[in-house]
Nucleic acid binder design. Structure first.
Length: 697
RNA sequence: GCCACCUUAGCUCAGUGGUAGAGCAACGGUUUCGUAAACCGUAGGUCUCGGGUUCAAGUCCCGAAGGUGGCUCCA
C-alpha cells in the first residue's frame, strides 16, 4: 500500500505519483546531478520541468525535460531549508512536550512557523531555548529525510493512530482517492513523520543556521471561532553569515521604526485618553501640512476642487450610503449629553433610582433601556468622505458640462479599529486621507484613470519610491451591478494601465463588492512593500443617493464615482515615508532646514543676522548659540536630522560667509557667501515637480 | 476581540520580597572652544491604575488601562 520512494531507481513500484511505473526509467535528481553535487553542498533540490523535487525523490526521466539544481541561494532553495527546519522544530517540540499535537508549519517570507496544540498551554521563552537546543541535536545527527507516497486512507489511519486530529482534518479536506505524501526524518532509532508535500533537504545536517524568533497565539485555520493554537516563529538561512545579515536587517528596521523616530524627532505622540489617535507635535504637524500643501498644489494642475465637510452626521446619511449596515463595527456613534440626559430622565436612572420598586421593575426597565439605547443612536462620526460628496453633488441639478467633477477633501476620519490591529501611525483610529472623488460619465472613466495614473506617478517619484507594483482587483463573487458594468469598468482600468505602459498583476475576485479597483504598492528602502494609493470604480453610491446629471441629450443620466487616494492616509504615509528616509526628510519637507551654529559666543550676533536673512526668504532656520562646543552642536542637529548645519566662526563673520555642512553628504561644504547658501537652500526647498504636458484641460 | 510579553524620572534602561538607581535631557554655575557628546552642581518618581497575599510588595497573586509581537504566505 505504501511506497518508499527512496527505493533504488528502476525497482518496481505500485505507485509513482499515481501512475504505474516501468514505462520510463526512474531516476533521482541526485543521480542526474551527481557531478554537481559532489562539489556543491548548497544544492538542496531540483527543478524538473515545472516541479520542485527533493534530490532523493525518483521521477520518470524524460530526456527532453531539463533537471536543474536548486541551491540554497535560490528563493526556492531557501524555502526548502526553512520548511525542513519547521519539521525539525516540530520533532523537537514533540520530543520535549509529549502530547502536543502538530497542525501546519509552512515556510513564510522571513522564515517559517509551526502551529501546535499544546494541552498545557503556551510556550515560554525558556521553552524556545530548549526547543532550539533540541533542534541542534537533531540537525547534527544528520538524519535523512525520506518521502513516502501513501493513499489517503492509509494516511488517515496513520495520523488517527497517532492522535493527530488536526492532520486528520487536513486529510479529510483532500479529495478521496488521491494519494498523499509523508515525510520522515529518522536516524533509525526514532522516526518523525509529517503529512507534507515537500520538498525537503537530503538530511538534517543541511540546516546550517537556524533561530527561533517568537511565540504567538494563532487560531486554527485563522478563524477566531476555532481553538487557539501556539505558533512558534523561526527562521533559517544557508549560512550563519546570512542569518546574521538577516538579524542585522531586523535591527536596522527597528532602528528606523517610525514610532521610535517619532519620539526622537518630536514628530508625534499618543496618549491613553485617545488610544490610537495621534497627536502631531509642531515638527510632525509641519511635515503633515507640507504634504497637504504639496498635494493641493498638484490639484490646481489636475483640476480638483476642494471642499470642507462636517464630522458628525445624522445616522440616516450612513443608512443611505450603506455604511451603517455594512461598516457599523468600525464606526463611532457619538451621543450628546442632551440625549443622554433625556434618556436618564425617561428611565429615572438618575439619583434616587435605587428604591425597591425600581429593582422590582427589572424586566420592564430592561426593555425600556434597550429602547432608549436605540434612540440614542442618532449620530454618526464619518468614517469616509464619499457620502458627504454625494450630498454635495445631489444638492442641485448637475450638467454634463460639469463632468468630470473632481472633488477633494482632507477631512479627518474616525474609524474604530480593534485594539490588536492598531500600530503607531500606520494603523490609527483618527486620520486624514488625500481623498477625492471623481463624478463622471461612464465614457469618461478611462481618461480619468489615465490622468490619475499620471498624477500618482508624479507623486511617487517626488518621494523617491522607485518601485511601484500595481494590482487590478476584479469582480468578487458577491457583488452588485450588471456584468456589462463590470466588463466596462475592468476593461477601463486595464486599458488605462496599458495606455500608460504600466505593468500590473490581476488579483482575481479581490475587488470591492461595488466595483473593481487598482491598488498601488510601493517598495521602501528596506525593500518592504506598502499599499499607498488606490482608485476604485463605484456604481453603487450614485445609485443609493439617486444622483443624476443632465446629458447633452437633455435627459437624466446616472454618473459613475471614482474613489481615489494617492498617499492614502497621511498618517500612514508619514509612517512609511519616515521609515523610508530613516527620519531624514528632504529639505522641502524638513521641519527645520538648517541650524546656524556658532563656534564661540563671539559670533552670536552674526548668527542671528544669518538666521534673520534666511528667514526673510521663508526658510526654516534656527540659531544654536548655546555654550556647547561646536562638536556637540553639530551632533545635536544631526540627531534631529537637520539637512544643513551652518557653521559660523570669526572667519565667516568677517566676510559675510557661512560654512554649511550637509547631512546627506556628511561633510563640510566649505565656506561660501551667505547669499550663495541662501540661494542653494531656497532651490532645494521647492517641492519636486515633473513637467508633464498631458494634464487634463 | 483572542494568545504571549511589556509598563520604574521627559527619554533609554538597571533594580527578583527588606524604605527607589544610572546615563542622557532639564535647571544653575564655570568654560568660549573650528566640524558627532566640555566640567561641576541642583532638582526630578503614588515604580500605569485598582484590589489582594505578606511583619514587609517596584518585585508575588487577581483585575483594569495603555503598549509590543502575533492571529492561514493553508499538508
Amino acid at each position: 500500500m505504501a511506497s518508499d520512494e527512496n527505493a533504488p531507481a528502476g525497482s518496481s513500484q505500485p505507485l509513482v505519483e499515481g501512475r504505474s511505473a516501468g514505462q520510463h526509467v526512474r531516476v533521482t535528481a541526485r543521480e542526474v546531478l551527481a557531478d554537481l553535487l559532489a562539489k556543491d553542498r548548497t544544492i538542496v533540490g531540483a527543478r524538473v520541468g515545472g516541479r520542485v523535487l527533493d534530490l532523493h525523490t525518483p521521477f520518470e526521466r524524460d530526456p527532453s525535460v531539463k533537471v536543474e539544481p536548486i541551491r540554497t541561494s535560490d528563493p526556492e532553495g531557501l524555502r526548502i531549508i526553512r520548511h525542513s527546519t519547521a519539521h525539525v522544530m516540530a520533532d523537537a517540540v514533540q520530543r520535549l512536550f509529549p502530547g502536543t499535537k502538530v497542525t501546519i508549519g509552512p515556510a513564510i517570507e522571513a522564515g517559517f512557523y509551526y502551529d501546535f496544540d499544546r494541552p498545557s498551554g503556551p510556550f515560554t521563552d525558556d521553552d524556545l531555548e530548549k526547543i532550539e537546543a533540541k533542534m541542534r541535536e537533531i540537525i547534527s545527527a544528520g538524519k535523512p529525510f525520506r518521502r513516502e507516497l501513501v493513499d489517503r486512507e492509509a494516511a488517515h489511519q496513520l495520523f488517527a493512530g497517532m492522535g493527530e486530529t488536526y492532520k486528520r482534518e487536513i486529510i479529510d479536506a483532500i479529495p478521496v482517492g488521491e494519494d498523499v505524501s509523508l515525510y520522515h526524518h529518522s536516524d533509525g532509532a526514532r522516526d518523525w513523520v509529517d503529512l507534507c508535500e515537500g520538498p525537503h533537504v537530503p538530511d538534517t545536517s543541511y540546516l546550517a543556521a537556524i533561530k527561533l524568533v517568537s511565540v504567538a497565539g494563532a487560531y486554527w485555520r485563522g478563524d477566531e471561532r476555532n481553538p487557539m493554537l501556539q505558533r512558534i516563529y523561526g527562521t533559517a538561512f544557508p549560512s550563519q553569515k546570512a542569518l546574521e545579515a538577516h538579524l542585522k536587517l531586523i535591527a536596522e528596521a527597528k532602528e528606523r521604526d517610525h514610532r521610535k523616530l517619532g519620539k526622537e524627532l518630536e514628530l508625534f505622540m499618543f496618549h491613553e485618553y485617545a488610544p490610537a489617535m495621534p497627536f502631531l507635535l509642531p515638527r510632525g504637524a509641519f511635515v503633515y501640512n507640507a504634504l497637504v500643501s504639496y498635494v493641493r498644489d498638484l490639484y490646481v494642475d489636475y483640476r480638483y476642487e476642494e471642499v470642507i465637510t462636517p464630522q458628525i452626521f445624522d445616522k440616516k446619511l450612513f443608512d443611505t450610503s450603506g455604511h451603517l449596515p455594512n461598516y457599523r463595527e468600525n464606526m463611532y456613534l457619538p451621543v450628546t449629553a442632551e440625549y443622554l440626559d433625556q434618556a436618564r430622565m425617561a428611565l429615572r436612572l438618575g439619583v434616587g433610582g435605587e428604591g425597591e420598586a425600581y429593582r422590582e421593575a427589572d424586566t420592564a426597565r430592561d426593555a425600556a433601556v434597550i429602547q432608549q439605547l436605540g434612540e440614542l443612536e442618532k449620530l454618526a462620526q464619518k468614517p469616509m468622505n464619499c457620502p458627504s460628496h454625494c450630498l454635495i453633488f445631489g444638492q442641485r441639478r448637475r450638467s454634463y458640462r460639469e463632468l468630470p467633477w473632481r472633488v477633494a477633501d482632507f477631512g479627518r476620519l474616525h474609524r474604530y479599529e480593534r485594539g490588536g490591529v492598531v500600530h503607531g501611525l500606520a494603523r490609527v483610529r483618527s486620520f486624514c486621507q488625500d481623498d477625492a472623488h471623481i463624478f463622471c460619465a461612464p465614457d469618461q472613466i478611462q481618461s480619468e484613470i489615465a490622468s490619475f495614473l499620471d498624477l500618482l506617478q508624479e507623486v511617487y517619484a517626488a518621494f523617491k519610491f522607485e518601485k511601484v507594483d500595481i494590482k487590478l482587483a476584479t469582480r468578487p463573487k458577491k457583488r452588485i451591478g450588471s456584468d456589462a458594468q463590470w466588463d466596462a469598468a475592468e476593461s477601463a482600468l486595464a486599458e488605462a494601465l496599458k495606455g500608460a505602459n504600466l505593468r500590473f498583476e490581476v488579483a482575481p475576485e479581490e475587488g470591492a463588492f461595488y466595483g473593481p479597483k487598482l491598488e498601488f504598492h510601493v517598495e521602501d528602502a528596506l525593500r518592504r512593500s506598502w499599499q499607498l494609493g488606490t482608485i476604485q470604480v463605484d456604481y453603487a453610491l450614485p445609485d443609493r443617493f439617486d444622483l443624476e446629471f443632465t446629458g447633452s441629450d437633455g435627459i437624466s443620466h446616472r454618473p459613475v464615482m471614482l474613489h481615489r487616494a494617492i498617499l492614502g492616509s497621511l498618517e500612514r504615509f508619514l509612517s512609511v515615508y519616515l521609515e523610508h528616509v530613516a527620519g531624514a526628510f528632504p529639505v522641502w519637507l524638513a521641519p527645520e532646514q538648517a541650524v546656524v551654529v556658532t563656534v564661540s559666543e563671539k559670533q552670536a550676533e552674526y548668527a542671528d543676522e544669518v538666521v534673520a536673512m534666511l528667514r526673510s526668504r521663508r526658510l526654516r532656520v534656527r540659531a544654536d548659540t548655546s555654550s556647547d562646543k561646536l562638536g556637540a552642536k553639530i551632533r545635536n542637529a544631526r540627531l534631529l536630522r537637520v539637512p544643513y548645519v551652518v557653521v559660523v566662526g570669526d572667519k565667516e563673520a568677517a566676510e559675510r560667509k557661512v560654512a554649511p555642512r550637509s547631512r546627506d553628504l556628511n561633510k563640510d561644504l566649505g565656506a561660501m557667501l551667505l547669499e550663495e547658501f541662501a540661494d542653494k537652500l531656497q532651490a532645494e526647498a521647492i517641492p519636486p515637480r515633473l513637467q508633464k504636458s498631458a494634464r487634463p484641460a
